[in-house]
């Protein structure tokens, strides 16, 4: 593997590095906060893309992994006194295990049935956590601010969590690229194109799909922990908001499903648009409606997303845009 042969990889990682370093260089806290959200969106979208874009399975309830991982990690920090990093890994592990179990059960379903089942899982989990007293039931859990002393105070904690998110995002993008250009990725894309033919080609589809589901669940679980730790509280409604799931899908679609750079572009565009709409006095209330119109326009007219469209339009850029 000669890495210079892969311009798309360098471009992708380069963009993430450059974007992620802007707040570090400028030292701007405002910029750091918005970049934190963008990086988080990129990680979520890239993770979802492994299942949605590569394997062609639509998970409508993907936020369940963010929520569950976040809850498990938050519990370990707030109630068991764990350090953030092992807790974040534990959150990722919890999400991975959930995906393994769900994968075995749910991935037999195809098309709309699978999509519906993932909504059901997310709602079942949300309503269950609502009743689960260990995790604080409907009130959720709060973090005593004293905990932040271990991380050099609240201000320092915010930079620390930013760096962690930055690191996870780079892992997400590398993973997205690595999967796409691997033997495993080839198997996933075969499933997306024609699952029966894939089986006849010797692809152990249940195993490969479950692997993809697990891979797409781990990083959302980890960043769930980072996000709620930073927020110092977690509640069922915020952790399992079905709407966030669909926003993830919109980001992937906007950028181009099944491409490495699509989720990156889509997440950045969507977050930028959303923060613009939220801060604009004219559109503040209509933010959701405008996002809806945008989504409809993409689906009707550019179903392959920005990157897909560019790839189609400018064939010369194929090796750069993946």
């Amino acid at each position: 593997m000669k890495s210079w042969k892969y311009p798309a990889l360098w471009l992708t990682v380069g963009v993430v590095l450059a974007g992620g370093l802007i707040p570090v260089i400028t030292g701007s806290k405002i910029m750091r906060e918005s970049m934190f959200l963008i990086l988080m969106a990129v990680t979520m979208a890239s993770s979802l893309n492994i299942l949605l874009g590569y394997a062609g399975y639509v998970s409508f309830g993907h936020i369940v992994f963010f929520g569950l991982g976040g809850y498990v990690g938050f519990y370990l920090i707030a109630e068991q006194g764990w350090n953030l990093i092992p807790a974040a890994l534990a959150g990722g592990l919890a999400s991975g295990v959930l995906a393994l179990l769900l994968g075995i059960a749910l991935l037999r379903l195809r098309g709309a049935y699978f999509a519906l089942a993932t909504i059901g899982i997310n709602e079942a989990m949300r309503t269950f956590i609502n009743n689960f007293n260990l995790f604080g039931g409907p009130i959720g859990m709060e973090l005593n601010f004293i905990v932040y002393q271990d991380y050099g105070g609240a201000a320092n904690m915010q930079w620390l969590t930013y760096w962690l998110m930055f690191g996870v995002t780079i892992i997400a993008v590398l993973m997205s690229y690595g999967v796409k250009f691997s033997r495993f990725g080839l198997g996933l894309m075969s499933i997306r194109e024609d699952e029966d033919a894939a089986m006849a080609m010797g692809i152990h589809t249940p195993k490969v799909k479950t692997m993809a589901y697990i891979l797409s669940a781990i990083l959302p679980g980890i960043i769930g922990v980072i996000f709620f730790f930073r927020n110092s509280s977690v509640q069922p409604a915020g952790a399992f908001r079905l709407h966030r799931s669909i926003e993830m899908i919109v980001m992937v679609m906007l950028g181009g499903q099944g491409t490495v750079q699509g989720p990156l572009v889509g997440a950045a565009l969507y977050e930028a648009l959303r923060s613009y709409l939220l801060t604009s006095p004219l559109f503040k209330d209509l933010q959701l409606a405008i996002a809806g119109v945008l989504l409809l326009l993409i689906i009707l007219f550019v179903p392959s997303g920005v990157i897909g469209w560019l790839r189609h339009r400018f064939k010369g850029l194929w090796r750069v845009l993946e």
């Binding site: 639509v58 999509a115 669909i246 809806g292 989504l295």
Partner: peptide, 14 residues
């Protein structure tokens, strides 16, 4: 399927 799920959801958002 994804397309109709999302297009009807876009109406939901609107």
């Amino acid at each position: 399927h994804l397309s109709s799920l999302l297009s009807t959801f876009s109406v939901n958002m609107m």
